[in-house]
Design a protein around this nucleic acid. Sequence first.
DNA 1: CTCCATTGTCTAGCGGTGCTAGGGTCGGAT
DNA 2: ATCCGACCCTAGCACCGCTAGACAATGGAG
Lengths: 192, 192
Amino acid sequence: MSVQERKQRERAERERLIVATARELAEQQGWDAVTTRRLAERIEYSQPVLYSHFRGKREIIGAVALQGASEMAVAMRAATAAADGPRERVAALARAYLDFAARNPAVYDALFQLDGGLAYAREDTPAPLKDAFAALLETLGEVAGDGVDPGLFTETFWASLHGLATLTREGRLPPEHTERRVQMLVDRLAMA
Amino acid sequence: MSVQERKQRERAERERLIVATARELAEQQGWDAVTTRRLAERIEYSQPVLYSHFRGKREIIGAVALQGASEMAVAMRAATAAADGPRERVAALARAYLDFAARNPAVYDALFQLDGGLAYAREDTPAPLKDAFAALLETLGEVAGDGVDPGLFTETFWASLHGLATLTREGRLPPEHTERRVQMLVDRLAMA
DNA sequence: CTCCATTGTCTAGCGGTGCTAGGGTCGGAT
DNA sequence: ATCCGACCCTAGCACCGCTAGACAATGGAG
């Protein structure tokens, strides 16, 4: 049995290698540069090996997205834990969100811009995605305001952050004054 | 000279046909389906003809984007003109924006999601883009609040709308309650 | 009217993409 | 020792964006 177990371990290890390599390549040169040929070459296997782990490129993007969601949740919780008071927590959360998006553009794209074949906002949504949303909700629920559904408020606030993140990164918004825009969102949306 | 003029007219007409066909195909089957081969076949010319009008696929996307920007500006001004009071105008603007994005997803993608090779938020930004932003500014400038730069406020509000539009369309936000989210943005961001 | 040059268009092809069929090799079980 | 199955690779499919080069049609000059 030990042989089978070893093979299974090696297989899992190789799968991790694929995801890590795809992510690395995407961060270095953008997702367009992540082709099955290049990816296969980097992991030193032939293309078909990729397809024994994932249905296709889409699923690889999805795997990177799930990894990113977990890290993002950690980053957001760390940021809010270090802040005092609801309002400060919201500000810290927003900055952590935008900071993550700016530092990991490829991962952010995998999560919210590209099609990774993942289900969002449903019962069968993968746990890491639900948890990332939960991390938002924990802090934002405090400042939803009276009679306002915390989930709905979180969705709206999240959408605003997402718009800021994407438009800024693609140069559709001037890069300066980002902090002032964030501050404005926090000041006006958060009720506390 | 008349012959040259006729040819020039026909050439311009064909260029319009290319843009219209690309847009139509994109709305029907998504931008992925807009390949140079399919596009060429639909306009009943060979592929190289496309390249005598545009540098490449990117420029075709850009042309659709500019067309869309003009239409969007018209739609937003029409919506705000029919509303009384600053706050109502903002609400009408927001609805018009999201309505346009929902009804013309491919055009919206060309404008804000894909790379059409256009310059945004600069002096050399094409006029239609500047004008679309101006249409936003006309209404949003009224409710920026005391001591707040109208441009900065417009950018922030726009980003929020953009986030709502994209996340909703890709199923990352549940489709219901869209109206309540918009209302929340208007209520809290607009100062008037 | 003939010839030439320019303009316009097409066919064919290059290097790339995601993905897969089919064959060979190698190791564990009998 | 032999078999068998799991594993992986080579080769190739249909498609992509884009372009070189051949060919035909057209307008102007002699």
